[in-house]
């Protein structure tokens, strides 16, 4: 699987933050690259197993759809054991189409591994870490940091950023989670600009790449 450096770092941070318990969440992809993650509550609050909150799962899937993302996989952490699926992990892996990603914090350096699990058979998947933006094959020509700027001023700043560019150039807009990352790309798209992709950053904000029309 391909995953952005930011998402990989973010889920390790999440795993470490949940210690000594296991952390869990969803991974979201666009065009085959994991560009977003949705941390979910581990209802078990245990160091050796997890169960996800169905309400949060539902909300996460709905948010993904709203942003044109697809469920790529489930991640969870092993606080003290290696990054390979436990018997329980295999038993509970119901979806053969998605990846199961495990973050092991057993060693000083966290390990992240991905697996496909079909009918009880585990097949390791290679993980390729890509740079944000690079994952969409582009590098931004300018950046507008709209962290902490609500709607609609974030769109005003994005439009100012786009106005300074030539057609075909790319603006990276950093937007807060929630309405900003839903509204701004939608509005920019309505005006004819191309939304190349959006990536969840380590701090929960989003990087959105807009190609000027």
């Amino acid at each position: 699987m391909e995953i952005t450096r930011q998402v990989r770092k973010a889920i390790i941070d999440h795993a470490e933050g949940e210690l000594p318990n296991e952390a869990c969440g969803y991974l979201a992809e666009r065009d085959g690259v994991v560009v977003g993650y949705y941390p979910l509550t581990n209802l078990d609050k245990a160091a050796d197993h997890y169960s996800m909150d169905p309400q949060e799962q539902f909300t996460a899937i709905r948010e993904m759809r709203a942003m044109g993302l697809k469920l790529a996989g489930v991640y969870h952490s092993h606080p003290a054991t290696p990054a390979r699926p436990s018997a329980e992990d295999i038993r509970l892996a119901h979806d053969p189409e998605i990846s199961y990603l495990i973050i092991s914090l057993a060693d000083a350096e966290p390990a992240v591994k991905s697996f496909g699990i079909r009918g009880g058979v585990v097949s390791p998947q290679e993980i390729t870490v890509v740079e944000e933006g690079e994952s969409m094959g582009v590098k931004a020509d300018a950046v507008k940091n709209c962290r902490g700027i609500g709607c609609p001023m974030n769109l005003v700043h994005a439009k100012v950023g786009l106005a300074a560019l030539r057609s075909g150039q790319v603006l990276e807009v950093i937007l807060d989670d929630g309405p900003p990352v839903i509204n701004v790309p939608a509005s920019a798209g309505r005006e004819g600009h191309r939304v190349l992709g959006q990536t969840r950053l380590a701090d929960g904000a989003w990087s959105v790449l807009l190609e000027k029309c």
Binding site: P152, M153, V156, K159, V160, E191
Partner: peptide, 25 residues
């Protein structure tokens, strides 16, 4: 292109948001 001050961005935000006016308008 005019450089807008932060105050101008707020003052004219409802024009800038308009698709047919925007920053250029």
């Amino acid at each position: 292109m005019t450089d807008f001050s932060e105050e101008q961005l707020h003052r004219y935000s409802r024009h800038i948001l308009l698709e047919d006016v925007g920053v250029e308008g």
